[in-house]
Design a protein around this nucleic acid. Sequence first.
DNA 1: GGCCGGTACTTAACATGTTAAGTTTATCCG
DNA 2: CGGATAAACTTAACATGTTAAGTACCGGCC
Lengths: 168, 168
Amino acid sequence: MAKGRTDGEHAAHRVPMREFSRSLPMALLRAREAVMRQFRSSLRQHGLTEQQWRILRALAAVEESEVTELARTAFLLGPSLSRILRDLEARRLIERRTAASDLRRGVVSISAKGLKLMEEVAPSSEAIYAAITKRYGARRLAELQEMLGALEASLADLDGEDENVSDE
Amino acid sequence: MAKGRTDGEHAAHRVPMREFSRSLPMALLRAREAVMRQFRSSLRQHGLTEQQWRILRALAAVEESEVTELARTAFLLGPSLSRILRDLEARRLIERRTAASDLRRGVVSISAKGLKLMEEVAPSSEAIYAAITKRYGARRLAELQEMLGALEASLADLDGEDENVSDE
DNA sequence: GGCCGGTACTTAACATGTTAAGTTTATCCG
DNA sequence: CGGATAAACTTAACATGTTAAGTACCGGCC
């Protein structure tokens, strides 16, 4: 009855689940952390968090953006974005106005000061990215990006289809 | 002098950086979020967050674990782990004692109640994992895992080597 | 034994993730 | 026009990420 160890683990308490180390979310988390660790100190030296940097990058690519659109672009939830925009505006890195046609909508754009900061950060950021690409291989990196995009796409329509797993 | 649009973007403010959408951290974040979104509602129905679930899974695989070791296994930082362990202990999902040989070290283990909870959650969790695997392809999934592991490994020794990027 | 640097957490402080409520403005509809 | 419903944020509340301090304990040295 008592099954022997199935692998290298102690197998102390048997619960029917895959090995923790083989978890896909875990692998994605670890990989992302390994990458981000390279950037964080550089961003930090310029007083930016990862998310603040994402917003500046997103804004630098367009003339201006509505808040909801920016949330989608920078991949942030509304509440996080609200807080960060408040801070970035106080630091004069972005500017913000209200859309004339719809007073509910906020329109945000990067300021001259924000652009200047980006120009300071971009070189080291690109250098780090280049180092990563060299380490891992440009070909392999492109392939990874493709697979990640495919994974995201393959799960896109699997979201709210089957809410009632068992009860309730 | 004024260069035309290089691609589909508006190219409003030109900062020398790659396209935001081609950022590796972003791709990893989006992929992970797409995966985790599938699990979150199930975990939530059982009153667990993603991190709490990670800890229970890690503890279920061993007889017991020191806190520092658990932090490494569950890929959590010390402060986060401290808070979560405090909560899980209050909920009687884990048990904790102090190592006799070294009073600084805490030793944690999953409780019977914790195991029972895991057995409740595991089936739907595995079902979701199976659905993802089927969607994306088992072969492709394994390949992705390998590439993620390789990425992590290739950056492992690139951490504290070159702190002084430019000045300071 | 007692000082001292180091280890293993824990706490603190601030930023973000996540869900639920609240507020203001649009839009639909009778 | 006026009420109902929805949209676009914002605020609130709680959990975690992240870095810096703080606390208790270990081990080595005098």
